[in-house]
Design a protein around this nucleic acid. Structure first.
Length: 320
DNA sequence: TAAGTATCTCATATTACGTCA
DNA sequence: GTTGACGTAATATGAGATACT
């Protein structure tokens, strides 16, 4: 049967990769071949991401492309009530955005870690608490009165470029974020949010795939268990038949050696003890090791107790 | 050097908006 | 025109890491 390693089943509860990113509970259910790929310290590696990105591309790309299609945009643009996320932030505001957003990268943060120096950050810490927050809500200078956030659709091209970038690396450093934002005419905060949501969607998809894989494994094991139970019933039925006892050998007790864990038949002569293959491994019987002969000759009372096997297993009936 | 603080970035949950049937 | 489902951009929150005092 499949073991844990066969399934490639591993749980990574917590670890740290190079970007000190949090590593979520990761089910690596890929076959053992893939288990050798991503290092355990990186349960969300680019390799795996790329692998899943390809798998997910179909599922994720569909809504993105359909929703963000030109026709949809053409219809939706009038509904944006004058807000066009795809348009470069206008002139002065755009420049201010691109510069301020270079420092505004997180809702909890006010300035970027491009420099990472607090002194420099402090100089940028103005009276405005979080300018990007207001911008990201789509509240323009003229729409300050509307407190509700505006949801802004990304264009097809923007989504495609973001997807391509995500395939290369599912996390962005500040420089990459800035460059991507500039390329897409988006605020860095928007790029950051997009990547966060994209990672969440990827993980969700993978979780669904993992669940499906586990479900199939469970079905397989259930079927295997059912088959074995049936086999046990058949063997028990054979045991109860009179013919069974006629050909039955004397009671047998198998003993396991503690050192090599081989099973020997204690009913036979100690000098002629046969080495029995493991029922699990089905390994071919091998000659008795030297230490076996020593142990069996001296009948040392050891901790390895005889293993009483079920009668029907001690003397398996002859199958014709 | 250790402790405390500030900041950044992340994952995660949730909200709210846009689209479509 | 309305409505519910769905996708997703945006927000809120907490945690870990890092730099600094």
């Amino acid at each position: 049967m499949m073991g844990k390693d066969d399934l490639g089943l591993s749980l990574s509860l917590s670890s740290s990769s190079h970007h000190h990113q949090h590593l979520p509970l990761q089910l690596n259910l890929m076959p053992s071949s893939s288990a050798s790929g991503p290092p355990p310290s990186s349960p969300f590696p680019c390799q795996q991401t790329t692998q899943w990105a390809g798998l997910l591309a179909d599922s994720d790309k569909r809504p993105a492309l359909e929703v963000c299609g030109g026709a949809v945009d053409a219809r939706s643009l009038p509904l944006l009530r004058g807000i066009d996320v795809n348009r470069a932030p206008s002139s002065g505001a755009a420049e201010r955005d691109s510069e301020e957003d270079a420092g505004v990268s997180s809702p909890n943060s006010t300035l970027s870690s491009v420099s990472g120096k607090r002194a420099e950050r402090d100089t940028h810490l103005g009276d405005e608490h979080d300018p990007d927050r207001a911008c990201s809500r789509g509240i323009s200078d003229e729409e300050d009165g509307d407190a509700s956030r505006k949801k802004l659709r990304l264009s097809k091209d923007q989504s495609a470029i973001l997807e391509e970038s995500f395939k290369e690396h599912n996390t962005l450093n500040p420089q990459q974020k800035l460059a991507l934002a500039k390329q897409l005419n988006l605020r860095p905060r928007q790029v950051e949010v997009w990547f966060q949501n994209r990672r969440a969607r990827t993980k969700l998809k993978q979780t669904e795939v993992d669940c499906e894989y586990l479900r199939r494994c469970c079905e397989t094991l259930t079927e295997e268990n059912r088959r074995l139970q049936k086999e046990v019933q058949e063997l028990r039925a054979l045991k109860l038949s009179p013919q069974f006892y006629m050909h039955m050998t004397p009671p047998t007790t198998l003993t396991m050696c503690p050192s090599c864990e081989r099973v020997s038949n204690s009913t036979t002569s100690t000098t002629t003890t046969t080495s029995t293959s493991s029922p699990l491994t089905n390994a071919p019987a091998q000659p008795m090791p030297e230490h076996h002969q020593f142990l069996h000759r001296r009948t040392i009372p050891g901790p390895w107790a005889p293993i009483p096997l079920r009668p029907f297993l001690d003397a398996p009936p002859q199958r014709s």
